[in-house]
Design a protein around this nucleic acid. Structure first.
Length: 625
DNA sequence: GACCAATTCC
């Protein structure tokens, strides 16, 4: 403040009777408080300089003035300027609504009303923006009332903002009501309704709107495509993307991000690559979000190398880029790379966030690095002030359980400051299966059945545990429990893309047009496998049937069918990429290791948890999964 | 003198 006061003397400095515009500019930038503004004002009055000739940025003037506890004084200043007073208040509202203090914008709005300053349509738009930023539906309703009272009902901009405000605050009913009675709507109105319907979980409703709207722009398509991705329907998203291309619209960066996410979910590398090329041709190469999504897409499509290339070529990286790359290495079991990437990141001063640590903990648990995992878990709060989320606890329990530290895992759960969820108990249950601890498994399942009684996965693991112990009565009990509760086993499926076509296989699937050849192919493989010492792991078949019956069940597993088909269709030297919706089965894992050596081919399997890259008879997971 | 809708890592 002292600095500003002293710079005031510049005005009356003997050598500068009229200040140059440059130092006047500098001077004005140093005004930050109402007190300083009053000083300036006083000076201008004294020197008879009209306020309106000041090159002061409007927003700045408005901000400084509005901070005055002496509201009428500010008003009086604005009245001496050559523009309507409301313009200055609007600049102020805009700055606050879009900045860090939207609540002050709302307060100022009420103050204007108190001083009988009549808001115009712009005033309303900025206050609505402030309400939206705060998800403040209560004040939003009041402002909506003013919009009506002030006669702005035919202002489409404002109406759209109000629809958006209600919808984004979760008041979808109000949004819909307003939407229905609007006398005119434009494409923005429809787009708002589409994206907000998706957010409220109603994709069908969104698609209905999308179908009904009279004209669509790129944003309409993008909203719908992103909507499908968000609600776990990546196939529909890709389908719609194709239609969009056919309709002759050019996808923008956001469309590209949405489609790439769909490709990541489905593992459709072909389309992912094509969109990558399109993205480069369209000048999106420098777009950080696009690159981040590309990293994720390549990681989830089994091309860690391509993900690394994208990452390396990025000119600007955000924490999302680093986290995506760390998580990428983690699911391939490359813990060393994940950790060294983290060190580099910290070295250049990038601050990790909660997601970064989920990736790191994942890396540790996939490779059994218990001490490192503990270290990261402690460091995250101690060094970075990040409060662990349930996901972090889940990773820790997974880390301990997989490594066989079941007791430690149990104690860890008991000491958690937040209520353990299904993932946490599920991780313990998984460890109990690997390390054959029936007692603790039963404890875990008690909690799981309470938390998530309809999740079939837990029942299956428990019955696996009983089956491996040959406790058939208990296995039957679990299956009875499932039946009584109406829990259906999620059918396992595997998919593989050949010549751009996605082929899906369920267990024992005979519906494929080439089913017969596929089974023949498997028969041939089986012979070679047995020579190599393959013994079918029949204990994982949950049925109390004859051994040879069990084998038949094993041989019909979807990942084996997909693999046989892949071997028929993939040219030499080209890796086979298989996606599975559940975890890869133990028997299939053992078989694939051997097959990779027999056929001298790389087999990359994405399961629910991670990647397995089979090559020369072994898997990158080192059988630690 | 200015207002409306969307995107990435878990």
């Amino acid at each position: 403040m002292l600095c500003s006061v002293s710079t005031l003397h510049l005005f009356s400095h003997p050598n500068s009777n009229s200040p140059t515009s440059q130092n006047l500019h500098n001077l004005l930038h140093s005004f930050n408080t109402p007190f300083e503004l009053k000083q300036l004002h006083a000076h201008l009055i004294k020197t008879n300089t009209p306020l309106s000739t000041l090159p002061l940025p409007l927003t700045k003037l408005a901000l400084v003035t509005a901070l005055t506890p002496d509201f009428p004084y500010a008003q009086c200043v604005f009245k001496h300027l050559d523009k309507p007073e409301i313009v200055f208040w609007n600049s102020c509202l805009k700055a606050w609504a879009e900045g860090q203090s939207p609540f002050d914008a709302i307060l100022l709005f009420y103050q204007l009303r108190e001083f009988d300053i009549v808001p115009d349509d712009f005033t309303c738009s900025f206050v609505l923006k402030a309400c939206a930023a705060l998800s403040d539906v209560l004040n939003g309703r009041i402002v909506h009332g003013y919009v009506e009272k002030l006669g702005f009902r035919s202002n489409l901009f404002l109406q759209n903002m109000i629809v958006h405000l209600y919808a984004s605050c979760g008041a979808m009913g109000d949004a819909r009501l307003l939407f229905d009675k609007m006398s005119q709507r434009d494409v923005v109105t429809w787009n708002i309704m589409i994206s907000q319907s998706v957010k409220s979980g109603d994709v069908e409703g969104a698609f209905e709107l999308f179908s009904l709207m009279p004209e669509r722009n790129v944003r309409s398509w993008t909203a719908m495509i992103a909507g499908y991705v968000q609600c776990g329907k990546p196939k529909e998203a890709i389908h719609l993307f194709m239609e969009m291309e056919e309709a002759g619209l050019r996808p923008n960066e956001v469309t590209v991000v949405a489609v790439l996410s769909a490709c990541a979910d489905l593992g459709t590398l072909d389309l992912g690559r094509r969109v990558h090329e399109y993205s480069n041709c369209s000048g999106f190469r420098g777009n950080v979000r696009v690159s981040n999504t590309l990293i994720d897409m390549y990681v989830k499509c089994g091309c860690l190398k391509d993900a690394c290339t994208v990452f390396d070529e990025m000119e600007e990286r955000t924490i999302v880029s680093w986290s995506a790359m760390i998580a990428g290495h983690a699911i391939y079991g490359q813990a060393e790379e994940a950790l060294s990437l983290f060190s580099k990141m910290v070295q250049i001063g990038m601050k990790p966030n909660d997601v970064t640590f989920i990736g790191l903990l994942h890396a540790c648990s996939h490779m059994g690095m218990i001490d490192k995992g503990r270290e990261f878990f402690n460091s995250m709060t101690r060094d970075y002030g990040i409060i662990p989320r349930i996901e972090h606890y889940g990773c820790m329990v997974d880390l301990f359980s997989r490594a066989g530290l079941l007791q430690e895992a149990y104690v860890f759960i008991m000491n958690m400051p937040i209520k353990p969820n299904g993932v946490v108990w599920g991780a313990l249950l998984g460890g109990c299966r690997v390390h054959r601890n029936i007692e603790l498994a039963e404890e875990a399942i008690q909690h799981l059945l309470e938390l998530d009684p309809l999740n079939d996965g837990y029942y299956v693991v428990l019955s696996n545990i009983y089956a491996e112990a040959e406790r058939w009565e208990d296995t039957a009990k679990v299956r009875r429990l499932m039946r009584d509760r109406g829990v259906k086993k999620t059918p396992g499926w595997s998919s593989i893309t050949v010549d751009g076509m996605l082929h899906e296989f369920a267990a024992g699937d005979e519906s494929h047009p080439q089913a017969e050849e596929i089974f023949q192919m498997w028969g041939k493989l089986l012979q070679k496998l047995k020579i190599k010492g393959y013994v079918p792991k029949t204990s994982i078949v949950l049925l109390d049937v004859e051994e040879n019956e069990k084998e038949k069940f094993l041989y019909r597993h979807s990942e084996k069918l997909a693999l046989a088909f892949g071997l028929m269709k993939t040219p030499p030297g080209m890796p086979i990429r298989i996606m599975k919706n559940l975890r890869v089965c133990e028997d299939c894992h053992a078989a694939m290791k051997l097959i990779s050596g027999i056929v001298n081919k790389e087999i990359i399997v994405r399961d629910r948890n991670r990647f397995h890259c089979f090559k020369d008879g072994s898997c990158t997971c080192n059988d630690y999964w």
